[in-house]
Write a protein that binds this DNA or RNA. Structure first.
Lengths: 247, 247
DNA sequence: CCCTTATGCCAACATGATTGACCTTAACCC
DNA sequence: GGGTTAAGGTCAATCATGTTGGCATAAGGG
């Protein structure tokens, strides 16, 4: 069996499967994404993926060291898609906002996959490219390295964290929407005002808001704070040019 | 077998297991937490939990509809612990900061359990109590209902999202710390400056920062923003008292 | 055109959740 | 206390899962 997985770039012989399909990392990853979309978060199994590809499950181990390795490749694909839909304008703030939203959107487009991968560090090329891009935007905007690293850290973790969280409820909505919405309706909305006055008072407002993601709001909050930090750093570097910005 | 799970409060006969232990929801949940802590994120299995309790695995189905149900109970336990370590002071901002950190800390104390449960909505009593508390703090501070709901939403999702994310890396550090730190050292820190100048320039700073959570920073950012919003709302309600705060 | 070996397939194994049938004994009633 | 009942324990079986060892075959370099 697969003692060692052959790197995709060094793959020479491509033998078609019994049912005719020719395998590749990319094909496997995309099929895996489709399985997750169609069969839910638990729908990605070696057996099922095998049959979907017209191949034996064990064949997958020629391409990936295990399902865990495949999972990382899926995460890499989501990151890559985000990066592909994004273009730089040169204005750091809108660039970061757009990049964050692109990542968030890319993950939400495949919620089940996102849940599996959002908290994993793949260390693969496209993910590294995203990190390099973010740091480049911040340093290019004039953030001192110390500040750039703080903002980078907050930005990427915030984005991935919300991607995972929001994808989680989307995935559940797809999978067990009935049970969960029923929970909301039957539990929260029915709480009596004498035991839970605040929930009861805002139940209608909550119902309207909890369907949206809080990510855009929090992201803008972070970028605002970073902008103040930047102005402060600039003022310190060129003293006498003006007063410190809003403290 | 267990057609229907008997509610904990209506449980009457407590028959000791073959090995003498007397079961209860609480005992099962705590044992499950211990298993997760000792055997890692994948270490919670019906078989293993059964033997740890000195009971047949199938016995668990007398207490929980399935492992999924047990998972929700674990989440409820984490929420309860957070609420127990928290006390109100009456100052909305420090109260919210303390509550957020308590939830975050409670989840991080059991990282593997947190990963399993952070993105689930349990709808159980302690979780509802937390929601009621947050809304109460905000409305008590004078936030109009519309604003209170926005801040509540951002606050709870931010906290849970970071709990999940940070717990994820903690859990992995416990489980595959070697592979992951090796990844960081061998991949990110070794990137050549000509292809990845920004990562190379900040590698040392990154290594020092990525071990900490970005949650406190982002939380304070959110609370600052909320404070401005509150001042704005107050000014609008009592016009002429002063000028609008920082816009 | 032959030889090597990469790559696909088959069968098997260990372990997972879950369930149906059964049995034991705690709890309640008299 | 003794009898009755069913809650709550156990047992054995089912079926799905990831993963691996051994084998076969065709791709492609020489």
């Amino acid at each position: 069996m697969a003692k060692q997985v052959v790197a995709e770039t060094e793959r020479r012989r491509r033998r078609p499967t019994r049912q005719g399909t020719v395998l590749s990392e990319k094909l496997i990853v995309r099929t895996a994404l489709r399985m997750l979309r169609e069969h839910g978060g638990t729908g990605l199994t070696a057996r099922r993926l095998g049959t979907a590809l017209g191949a034996d499950p064990s064949t997958l181990y020629r391409y990936f060291a295990g399902l865990d390795d495949l999972t990382r490749a899926i995460g890499e694909e989501l990151m890559g898609r985000a990066l592909d839909t994004w273009t730089a304008t040169g204005e750091w703030r809108s660039d970061l906002r757009a990049l964050g939203r692109a990542i968030h959107a890319s993950y939400l487009a495949d919620p089940q996959a996102a849940v599996l991968t959002a908290s994993r560090v793949t260390g693969r090329p496209r993910e590294i490219a995203v990190d390099e891009t973010i740091l480049g935007i911040l340093r290019g905007a004039g953030f001192p390295d110390v500040d750039a690293v703080v903002v980078y850290h907050a930005f990427i973790d915030l984005t991935l964290a919300f991607a995972a969280l929001d994808a989680g409820s989307l995935a559940l909505t797809e999978q067990a929407r009935v049970a969960d919405e029923e929970m909301w309706r039957s539990t929260y909305a029915e709480l009596p005002a004498d035991t839970h006055p605040h929930i009861a008072a805002t139940a209608r407002l909550l119902a309207g808001r909890m369907n949206h993601s809080a990510y855009p709001v929090v992201l803008d909050t972070l970028l605002n704070s970073a902008a103040e930090q930047l102005a402060w750093a600039r003022a310190r570097r060129t003293p006498g040019t003006g007063s410190a910005p809003n403290p």
